[in-house]
Each structure stands twice: as structure tokens, then as C-alpha cells.
Design a protein around this nucleic acid. Structure first.
Lengths: 253, 253
DNA sequence: GGCGGTATTGGTCGACATGACTCAAAGGGC
DNA sequence: GCCCTTTGAGTCATGTCGACCAATACCGCC
């Protein structure tokens, strides 16, 4: 290696206690699928600042828990659901993002299967499920910089769908390929061919594994579909490729 | 939408001033290419904790700057170079990661072209360029949780190389395709066919644009190569695909 | 039960991308 | 001039992907 003398890191240049203090919070963008569209769980703020506005659920990090544990705690508080994919999105710490004090928030992304009943708590403040398109399209104004956080979260989901097993987090422990395909179609807002979709996901080893069982057809009939469960590996070579150029918007029907 | 009553976010449940305070730092993983391998800039700590150990350069975030500005400030302090790709990696806040106090650090990734001379500063503490393989392979022990941060950074570079223009950050403003290919070969530790590489990068619109000029051949002779510069778009459809299964390790010679 | 409708599932076909390879072009060094 | 190098253009076989067709197995209804 080459060693040179250079400016020392100021990690330890001065008295650490003299450095500015921040509050650290975790925010959790909770996404799920409902009515064939990507939906986000928002809570209504009860206090200033931004009282009455909708916001991404979150809370303060405690010193004796990791960031991931804090995020999972928030998730369980809001939904009562523990079984969910939870990953870190990034940190947001622009000056003045919270007028009360210096706050750095670490945004997380949680993906749940359709949550039938939100855990009704005791507090009077409302929580609601909104289409993300209403947030991204600015039809709903969010508190703090949460609009940007949600935009980043949606972009992350769209991107990760292509290279990871994330889609299986939107569906139950066992699922049909139609359900899985519906995830891609809703998040990417495209229409995918069922036959080609099956060929892609089943050809990749360990992506979905057949259970041998079959589901009962829905109200509209059809052949009883096979039930699959998710494989073990998280990353994949090329599970489903996102249509790049000409995005066929949902055509017929 | 569906509105229910649920637990209120504890963003505003109690007195904000009563919540735990953290120090927020930014760490910058500075990567470059040297001797045909990926290298990382490390600094030697002068104080406890971890005095004498190598660490990723970093420093405290100030209240009046963004996280990105803080990271760029650290980058310039260490290298004197401002023109570099800088992106956020993620936040690390495990309890006890800094024995002095509660610290959450936001790690960043900076990619530079080969830095001839590190800006020699005034301080006596050393800085050095190490092969990342020595860090990932635990031949060099790092302070704090910096080993994990570096591992995550390298994984990020390997991954982003495939879908973004990141490779151009390792080379100068104009470059030959051999130089660009050397980036992929060094980071992925594979050998790529020159002809196929050229076909891939030039077929994608706006990925590299020819300047019309030619570089002078190196000491080993050869046809004078074309000079290219980076295109505008950052994300791409399929610039260069990473060899998945059988990774041909550098064979002949 | 028969019939139309729907969703699943297996298969074909052509366009295109990719990997391995060959070969001409254009320089340096001696 | 000869032999070395690297660049850069082209060829060819293989594989992948999108579009499409058809058979299967259920539903609801008459």
C-alpha cells in the first residue's frame, strides 16, 4: 500500500461531547397491495408541526435498539403484523426538516401482504390506506419531507422487484402465479403475459417452489391453479425483466 | 381510501425534548482503481477508541448542512478532490458501536478516478490506499463497524456497475474502452471480451459518446484507441451484464 | 348434462441478444 | 522491414424473450 500523511479524520479531533446533538427517528413506509394498486399506510398527525396532515408512521430510536429493531417496533405498533419484509431505505437529514429540532430520520420500507384489518388501537388519531399514486401525484400532501421518502420507497420497490424475491412479500405464504404476476403488474403498471411469466419464474432455480397443492378457482371460474411458495435465495439472476421501452398499458377488457 | 382509528405515531406523543440524543456522523468509503484492483482510502486513528487502527474517514454532521454536504466536506478534506460520484449507502446505528456515546453514522460511497497524489495535509496521522480485498478478507482490521460498511460499499459498487454509469466515475473525463473495461474486470474480478464489450456499450444510446479523438498507444504499442466521454443518463437498460454462472477467471497470459 | 366463459398451462415461432471466435487495421521497438 | 502489440469490425451458433396459439379444467347458467 501507499502511506502518506494527510488530514486526520475529525472523528476524534475535538471533544466528542462538544458536537451537535440530534434526535434520530425511524420512519416506516408500509406498502401493500389492494384493489390492484400499490397502497401506503399513513397516519394523521395530532400535534404541531404539521398537525392534521398525513405522514409516514415513525418514532424515535432508542439507544439500546438497532435501527432495524426500532423500525420493526414501529411497524408492529401500527399494523400488529410482524411477518413482513423490512429493509432500510436511507437517511434524511436536511437542515430544518423538522422545525422543532435537529432530526435525522432513517427511512425504512416494509412490504406486507394485503392486511385485512389494521390493528385498531386506542388512540383517536386516524390511520388510512392510500394509493401511492395519490401521494406521488401530490393529491395528498404529506408532512415533513415524507413526500420525497415515499417517492424513493416506490422507486426502490419498482427496482428491487426486478432483481430480488421482493414480490413474494406482497402475497401470502403460498400463492398462485397469477397472484404473483398481479404484484408485478400493479407495481410496474404494465401487463405481463401469463405464459411467459410462468416460464420465467419457474425456470430460475429456487425462485418459486411448487407445493403440489392447488387453489380453488375464483368466482370467475378457470382451471385450479398450482400453489407455490417462495424459495430461499433473496437475490436472483434474472427473475422477471421489466418492460423497458414500449410499455403496453393494460389493453383489452 | 379506508380510514380506521389506530395507534398514533409516537412522533408527537410526548415531549420531544425528552427523547434520547445522538451524535450523527458521516463516513465516506472512498474507492478508486490502482494496480488493476479496487482500492480504498483509510485513515489511522490517533485517539481512543480504536487508537492506531485503520478506519474509514468521517466526521460529525453539522446542523446547517445536509448529509450529502457533510460527506462531500469530508471527501474534500481527505483527498482534495471534489469531482467525484458521491452517494449514500445507508445508516448504521447499532447500540454500542461507539463506546463513547450514542452515534448513528450515515455511510457514503465516493468513487474517484485514480488519485495521483493524495492531498498531503498538515496532520501527522497517516492515510493510505489499501486493496479492498485486504479489508474484506479481514487481513486489515478496521475500527468500529467499518468492516461491515466497507463490505456493503463494495457490494453496492459491484451491483451498480451493472445498471448505472458508475464505471465512468473510475476513469477520467475522456477514456478509452479498454480503460472502461478494466474497471469492470477489476471490480468484478472477471475477464471480459473486448469486442463484445465494445458492442454492448456502444449499442446502448447515450451510454458512451465518441469524441472523435484518439489516444496515443501505450508502451506496448497497438492501434491508437478512440476516446469516449460519458453520456448523460445515469441509469441504463442493460449496459454490461455481469457474468453469472461460470466466471472465467483471467485465463491466458 | 351441455354450453359459453375464464383462467391456467404447455407449446411454437421469429426477433434479438449474447458469448466465442476470426481477422484486418494501425501503431511501437528493434 | 519484421514481429510484437492493441484496437475494432465481423461471423456464427446458441439462448432468451415477447407474441401468440391451443389444450385443460374449472365456473355459472340454461
Amino acid at each position: 500500500m501507499t502511506t502518506i500523511t494527510g488530514p486526520q479524520s475529525d472523528h476524534d479531533r475535538y471533544d466528542p461531547a462538544a458536537y451537535p446533538r440530534f434526535a434520530v427517528t425511524v420512519d416506516v413506509v408500509i406498502l401493500t397491495l389492494a384493489d390492484g394498486a400499490l397502497q401506503i399506510l399513513l397516519v394523521q398527525r395530532g400535534q404541531e408541526p404539521f398537525a392534521g396532515m398525513w405522514a409516514v408512521p415513525g418514532g424515535f430510536k432508542l439507544p439500546n435498539e438497532t435501527l432495524g429493531e426500532a423500525a420493526r417496533r414501529e411497524l408492529v405498533e401500527e399494523t400488529g403484523v410482524d411477518a413482513a419484509v423490512l429493509m432500510q431505505l436511507g437517511a434524511y437529514g436536511d437542515p430544518g426538516r423538522d422545525p422543532r429540532m435537529n432530526v435525522v430520520t432513517v427511512a425504512h420500507l416494509a412490504v406486507l401482504r394485503e392486511l385485512g384489518s389494521l390493528a385498531a388501537g386506542t388512540d383517536a388519531t386516524a390511520a388510512g390506506l392510500f394509493p401511492v399514486s395519490d401521494v406521488v401525484g401530490r393529491r395528498i400532501e404529506l408532512a415533513f419531507d415524507h413526500q420525497r421518502i415515499v417517492r424513493d420507497a416506490v422507486e426502490r420497490v419498482r427496482s428491487d422487484l426486478e432483481s430480488t424475491r421482493l414480490a413474494t412479500a406482497f402475497v401470502g405464504p403460498t400463492f398462485t402465479l397469477s397472484e404473483l404476476r398481479a404484484v408485478y403488474e400493479a407495481v410496474w403498471e404494465v401487463e405481463l403475459d401469463g405464459a411467459n411469466f410462468r416460464r420465467s419464474v419457474t425456470s430460475e432455480e429456487g425462485w418459486v417452489v411448487p407445493t403440489g397443492k392447488r387453489a380453488v378457482p375464483g368466482g370467475e371460474g378457470g382451471k385450479p391453479p398450482e400453489l407455490f411458495r417462495a424459495g430461499k435465495a433473496w437475490k436472483y439472476g434474472s427473475p422477471i425483466r421489466r418492460p423497458r421501452a414500449r410499455q403496453r398499458r393494460r389493453a383489452k377488457r
